[in-house]
C-alpha cells in the first residue's frame, strides 16, 4: 500500500522525487547495459518485473484486520541487483498511479524510494550478507525477500511520520502510529512474499540453471569427476563414479550445455 495521491505536502513530495531520480536514472542505465550485454537475460528480466506486477496487485488480509499487498521486489534485486529494480518498481508504481488511482503521481517519488530503492537494497544486502556466511541459498532468498518487503513499508511509515509529526509526541509518536498501520500489517505478508520468492527461485533453479550461474546466484558447478553426487539439482540418481566413456560424453555435453541441469543427469544415467 503506497502513499495516496496528494497526501504528502509539496515540499516532501519534491524532496523524495529528487532523492529517487538519480537511482532511477542509474537503474535505467544498468538495465540497458544488462540487456545489451546479455540479450538472453531479457526474458528473465521480464519475469522479474512480472513477479512485481503480480504481487503488488494482490491485496491480502493481514493479522491487523486490514489489507495490504506485497511488493515482489526482492526476487529481481537478488537476480539482477537492486538498480534494475528501481526501474521495474517504478513501472509498476506508474501503472498503479495512472490506472488504479493507487499511490499517486505527486507521491511517486516517495513511493519509488520506499518500494523500488530502499526495499530492494535492504533485501539485497541481507541476502548477500547471509550468503557470505554460507547460509543455504533458499534461506538467504527467503530472508532477502522478507526484508525487501517489510523495509519498504517501514520506509513508508518514516516518510509519513516526517511529513506529519504528531502534535503531542512528535516524529516518534507519528512513526509508531504509521508503523502500526503499515509495518505491522506487512509482517505476515512479508512472510508470504518470502515463501513465494523461494517458490519462484526453486522453479528457476530447475529451469534456468545456466542463467542463475551466470548471474552469480548459483555457484559454478563442481567438476563431476571429483564430486559426482554433488552436482545434480534433483535428488535423482547421483550414481557411482563415472567411467571414461561417460566422462567423454559428459565433456561433449558440457560444451553445449546451457541451463539444463536435470536433463544432464538423465543423459548421464542413459549413457551408463
Amino acid at each position: 500500500m503506497h502513499i495516496a495521491e496528494g497526501f504528502l505536502p509539496p515540499a516532501h513530495a519534491i524532496a523524495w522525487g529528487v532523492a529517487s531520480a538519480p537511482f532511477v536514472v542509474h537503474g535505467v542505465r544498468s538495465l540497458t547495459r544488462e540487456v545489451k550485454e546479455h540479450p538472453e537475460s531479457t526474458l528473465l528480466l521480464g519475469a522479474s518485473g512480472a513477479f512485481t506486477f503480480v504481487l503488488s496487485a494482490l491485496k491480502i488480509p493481514s493479522v491487523t484486520g486490514s489489507c495490504s499487498h506485497p511488493t515482489g521486489t526482492g526476487l529481481g534485486a537478488i537476480l539482477f541487483r537492486p538498480p534494475v529494480m528501481a526501474v521495474l518498481g517504478t513501472i509498476t508504481l506508474l501503472f498503479q498511479a495512472l490506472l488504479l488511482a493507487h499511490g499517486g503521481l505527486t507521491t511517486l517519488g516517495a513511493n519509488v524510494f520506499s518500494m523500488a530503492i530502499a526495499g530492494p537494497w535492504a533485501g539485497y544486502a541481507v541476502y548477500r550478507l547471509l550468503k557470505r556466511y554460507d547460509v543455504p541459498l533458499m534461506a538467504a532468498v527467503f530472508c532477502g525477500a522478507f526484508v525487501a518487503d517489510l523495509s519498504t513499508y517501514c520506509v513508508t511509515s518514516v516518510q509519513l511520520a516526517l511529513a506529519f509529526p504528531d502534535p503531542g509526541s512528535g516524529f516518534l509518536g507519528a512513526l509508531g502510529k504509521f508503523g502500526g498501520i503499515f509495518a505491522v500489517t506487512q509482517i505476515p505478508l512479508a512472510v508470504s512474499e518470502g515463501l513465494l520468492t523461494v517458490l519462484v527461485m526453486r522453479l528457476l533453479v530447475q529451469s534456468s540453471r545456466g542463467e542463475l550461474t551466470r548471474l552469480g546466484v548459483l555457484l559454478q558447478r563442481a567438476r563431476p569427476a571429483t564430486a559426482p553426487g554433488a552436482t545434480p539439482a534433483t535428488d535423482r540418481a547421483p550414481g557411482p563414479t563415472m567411467d571414461t566413456t561417460t566422462a567423454k560424453t559428459e565433456a561433449k555435453i558440457k560444451a553445449t550445455d546451457q541451463d539444463t541441469g536435470d536433463a544432464r543427469t538423465e543423459t548421464e544415467a542413459r549413457a551408463r
Binding site: M1, H2, I3, A4, F7, K59, P61, S62, V63, T64, G65, S66, C67, S68, H102, L160, F164, K177, F178, I181, F182, T185, Q186
Partner: peptide, 20 residues
C-alpha cells in the same frame, strides 16, 4: 481478526489517510 474494526480488512493506505 478484522471484526473489531468499523470496516474490516480495509486497505492500509486508507487507514493511513485517516491517521493523517
Amino acid at each position: 481478526l478484522g471484526d473489531h474494526k468499523e470496516e474490516p480488512f480495509a486497505g492500509a493506505d486508507a487507514q493511513a489517510e485517516t491517521a493523517i
